[in-house]
């Protein structure tokens, strides 16, 4: 569905952000795009949505060149950006003038999402708080029913109950023909939501695995004390003891801890790569 081949891009000449980057994303998945600040997550999302043009290589979404920004492409892709722009109108007016651009827009679902997020339908958009605006845009994005949904830090500004509603709604909208990409720093917000992890570091994709594969090959657990005989890929001390990532040698079943995985991949890249290759 999303095909990035040999993508080379730089904001400044001589300082490439991406060099020959390759990435293929398939429908029916929720991808978590993780990376440190400045790793290039937002730039990659902009490339996918056609807001930035590659210096070399190609970015295609359902066979269309993203940078062409054709209506047939734009009506099937939706970006929820980190910083939002909403015009000075009421929700009804916004809906009346924007939803018509998306042929598969589901008005009933939109009402249901607003109700879930407890946003009144007659609300004036500029009077909303940042969190409410975010919830409104997420509701609109989900109701737009586009085949590709891209979200940049969607949980920023959401309160705790809204984060679980967000997870519930996202999980509920995923179908076999849709691809959802979520970029975030707040990895714990994506627990139990994403099924594939993509980690960018130093402007390269350094890790791309399904959650299932990760839990097959790695074990996440909390131990009271570190065992020197055990291979620990990454350890994080907390009040309960030590949260550790180890190779899953005994086929144990554990729940993925995204934050631990991310830190393990960044700090122990070679060992992790050896396990997955």
């Amino acid at each position: 569905m999303i095909n990035i081949q040999s993508l080379t891009f730089s904001y400044k000449a001589g300082r490439p952000l991406f060099e020959n980057l390759n990435l293929q994303l398939q429908p029916g998945h929720i991808y978590g795009l993780l990376g440190k600040n400045g790793a290039g997550k937002s730039t990659l999302l902009k490339q996918i949505t056609g807001l930035l043009f590659p210096d070399a290589g190609k970015v295609e979404v359902f066979g269309e060149v993203a940078s062409g920004r054709n209506p047939s492409f734009l009506q099937d892709i939706f970006l929820v950006p980190e910083e939002l722009y909403l015009p000075k109108v009421k929700i009804k007016q916004y809906l009346a003038t924007r939803a018509c651009f998306y042929p598969n827009f589901d008005y009933k679902a939109f009402d249901a999402y607003l109700k879930e997020f407890e946003i009144p339908q007659n609300q004036y958009l500029p009077e909303m708080s940042y969190g409410q605006k975010k919830k409104f845009v997420i509701s609109f994005a989900l109701a737009a029913n586009t085949r590709v949904l891209v979200m940049d830090e969607p949980t920023n500004g959401l309160d705790i109950p809204s984060k679980s509603i967000f997870r519930k709604l996202i999980a509920g909208t995923l179908t076999d023909d849709k691809c959802i990409i979520i970029s975030t720093h707040q990895v714990r917000d994506l627990d139990n939501l994403i099924d594939s992890i993509v980690i960018i570091d130093n402007h390269r994709i350094i890790f791309r695995e399904a959650v299932e594969t990760v839990t097959d090959k790695l074990s996440f657990k909390v131990v009271p004390q570190l065992n020197p005989a055990e291979t620990v890929l990454y350890a994080d001390s907390n009040l309960r003891g030590h949260a550790i990532v180890t190779p899953n040698q005994h086929q144990e079943h554990s729940r993925i801890d995204m934050e631990l995985l991310f830190n393990a991949v960044l700090s122990n890249r070679q060992s992790i790569q050896e396990i997955f290759n």
């Binding site: 949505t49 056609g50 807001l51 920004r69 209506p71 734009l74 009506q75 892709i77 939706f78 970006l79 950006p81 910083e83 939002l84 722009y85 924007r98 651009f101 998306y102």
Partner: peptide
């Protein structure tokens, strides 16, 4: 933000 809105509108 407005730029994104302008370019991403399906027209």
């Amino acid at each position: 933000e407005r730029r994104m809105d302008f370019f991403l509108l399906p027209a």
